[in-house]
Structure formats: structure tokens, C-alpha cells
Design a protein around this nucleic acid. Structure first.
Length: 275
DNA sequence: GTCTATGTTTGCGG
DNA sequence: TCCGCAAACATAGA
């Protein structure tokens, strides 16, 4: 669920909540597989006494940089959420990893489906370095995107979902960006013209910025839904043009939105205005 | 109760 | 290189 705007919202919330500067007193792991690296025991030993130097996002990873250069990466996958609560608050059933801080607060990974992963690394770039460019950074230009598209021969939708191609796009914002750019998700990346690449570049930025402005997209009311740190829901659902709007009229041409499967992923498209 | 789908990623085989 | 499939899980909705 959490894509770039959602993870960025969480990172900002954690910063506002004062996480930067806090010192870890201890780490606790209640579901071993939530820790990707190192082992849970080593994780707990190694994370102790570290001081948070920065909180940031890279792709869909939330990153805590420590003052000693180590980095804690969290990937929320489908259903991960973060809770920042007083240490004396009772732990919930799905809170699988806990970082306790000096001063009495705790950061907890709540993850019903248990797909989320935490890494504690000497060199965070070992993982983050695999990611493609950040779509909202200045270095990601229309020209760059156009040349990247030419170098690949893949369907555009799965390509945009590929985190080594561009970092941070998931199913929601990919469908939205393709609609915005008038591009059909089944198009081959090489068939996309320079003008279309430019439109796609703009569309990606428009939908991500809008998601960010609205503090993310929260869909249903379920446990796997997106909530930021303070249990706050995003309100971007009101801005979605095609995602999960099967059968509803396209906001541009009134044609019914179709749901198709592309690259094993549910995909929403207006067959009339996406070519 | 049963069945299907799910917003992510990785690894395997063709 | 690229594609399709399965798996890691729990829950909501039909």
C-alpha cells in the first residue's frame, strides 16, 4: 500500500514528532522474519545506543540514519504502518518490531500481513543503491525518462512498477500517471514518443505531488489500509481518476473505466483516451 | 463458512 | 532480457 507519497508523509510525520536526535535504548523483535538483516538478536544488540541523525525516504523505504553512519531501513510492503507511542502503551497484536527511545517513546512496526522488512546496515547504499532515480528530484528529467524508456523493451506499466527503473511508484500512482499522460498500460516502452515521454514525466510528478499534498491515499477501512503515524488517513482517494473506479465514467471522456490485468497486477484504464 | 482479491517484492524457470 | 508464476501473510468483501 504505501507508495512514495505515503512513505514521504510518514517520514515527515516522524520528523515533526521529534524522532531526530533521539537515542535508542533497546530494540525488540516479536516476529523474526520482519528483520531482513542482520539476525534479530544481532539487530537488537547493534541498534542499542544509536542516535537518530536523520529521517528520510528513498523510494518506498523509510530510512533512519544514525550518527555513527549505520542506517535502519524499513519497507512497509503491503500492510506495514508505524506507530510512535508512549512506552507504557500496551503492545498491539500486530506490532512486530519495537524501537524504544530514551525519554519513553517507542516506534513500532505494525504489520498485519507481515510482509514488511527492517534492515540495519553499515552501508544503507548497498540496498538503496539498487533503486532507480527519485521521480521528484531535479535529476529526473523528461529527457532522462525518454532515453531510459528507449533502452528497455517492456510493457510500460510493469516497467514503471520496477523499482530499479524509477523509485517509488506503486499500483495506484502508476495507473493514475498513465491515465494523466493518455498512455495505455500495455504500450511497449520503445513505442513511446518523445512527446509522450514528456507527458508521462509530467504526469508522474503531478500525481505524486498531489498525493503528497493530500497526505497519501487511504482506500478502505481495513487493517491493511494506509494510515500515517498519528493514525491519520490520507485524503488522496478523492483525487483518483481511474484506480479502483471500474465501471465509473472517465473524468475526461465519460467512457466507463475498465479493469484489466497487466503483469499480474490489477490495472485501471480508460480505453478511449489512453492509447 | 468458503472463495477470491489485495496497494509489494523476490526468486525461479522458460 | 523479458515474462509469468508462486510465495511470503492476514483480512475484507462477495
Amino acid at each position: 500500500m504505501p507508495e512514495l507519497p505515503e512513505v514521504e508523509t510518514i517520514a515527515r510525520d516522524l520528523k515533526v514528532a521529534g524522532l531526530v536526535g533521539k537515542t535508542v535504548t533497546c530494540g525488540r523483535v516479536y516476529w523474526a522474519r520482519s528483520i531482513a538483516e542482520p539476525s534479530p538478536a544481532t539487530f537488537c544488540r547493534q541498534v542499542e545506543h544509536k542516535k537518530v541523525a536523520a529521517v528520510r525516504r528513498r523510494g518506498k523505504f523509510l530510512v533512519l540514519d544514525f550518527t555513527d553512519g549505520d542506517g535502519l531501513l524499513m519497507h512497509l510492503r503491503m500492510s506495514g504502518r508505524l506507530h510512535l507511542v508512549p512506552a507504557d502503551q500496551e503492545r498491539l497484536g500486530h506490532e512486530h518490531v519495537v524501537l524504544a527511545f530514551k525519554g519513553g517513546s517507542e516506534l513500532r512496526l505494525h504489520d498485519t500481513r507481515k510482509f514488511g522488512r527492517v534492515y540495519l546496515l553499515r552501508d544503507p547504499e548497498r540496498i538503496l543503491g539498487r533503486l532507480g532515480p527519485e521521480p521528484l528530484e531535479p535529476g529526473f528529467t523528461a529527457q532522462l525518462l525518454a532515453s531510459m524508456l528507449k533502452k528497455k523493451n517492456r510493457l510500460i506499466k510493469p516497467l514503471l512498477l520496477d523499482q530499479t527503473f524509477v523509485a517509488g511508484l506503486g499500483n495506484i500512482y502508476t495507473d493514475e500517471a498513465l491515465w494523466e499522460a493518455h498512455i495505455h498500460p500495455l504500450r511497449g516502452s520503445r513505442t513511446i514518443s518523445g512527446a509522450e515521454a514528456k507527458a508521462l514525466h509530467r504526469a508522474i510528478r503531478v500525481v505524486l505531488e498531489r498525493g503528497l499534498k493530500n497526505l497519501g491515499t487511504s482506500l478502505g477501512t481495513g487493517k491493511a489500509n494506509f494510515y500515517s503515524v498519528g493514525r491519520r488517513r490520507g485524503r488522496n482517494i478523492d483525487q483518483l481518476k481511474v484506480f479502483r473506479r471500474t465501471g465509473l465514467p472517465c473524468p475526461r471522456c465519460r467512457t466507463a473505466i475498465e479493469r484489466i490485468i497487466v503483469g499480474q497486477r490489477s490495472t485501471h484504464v480508460c480505453a478511449e483516451c489512453q492509447r
